[in-house]
């Protein structure tokens, strides 16, 4: 994927497209018709949101399982 995030040392992630350091952004997450607000790192310029593997394999997976069980 051409547009990616890059880790910029100890300060954390930055946007591969814009070069801006990611900032906490309020994000409305939707899955299977349910939605809720969370805070995730995002690019202040282009609005892209980073979901790292720890999050994807952790709480996001747990939420998916919960909603799929309902």
């Amino acid at each position: 994927m051409a547009h990616a995030f890059s880790k910029a040392g100890p300060e954390g992630w930055s946007c591969g497209k814009c070069g801006r350091k990611l900032e906490p952004v309020s994000v409305n997450v939707e899955y299977m018709g349910s939605s809720f607000f969370v805070e995730l790192p995002g690019c202040p310029d282009c609005g892209s949101i980073l979901i790292d593997s720890e999050l994807a394999e952790g709480k996001m997976l747990e939420v998916e399982k919960l909603l799929e069980d309902k």
Binding site: A4, F5, V27, N28, L40, L50, S53, M60, L61
Partner: peptide, 14 residues
């Protein structure tokens, strides 16, 4: 902003 889960995201979906 809205983010829609796109199913399983084991690799860290963006």
């Amino acid at each position: 902003p809205d983010v829609q889960f796109s199913g399983r995201t084991p690799g860290g979906a963006i």
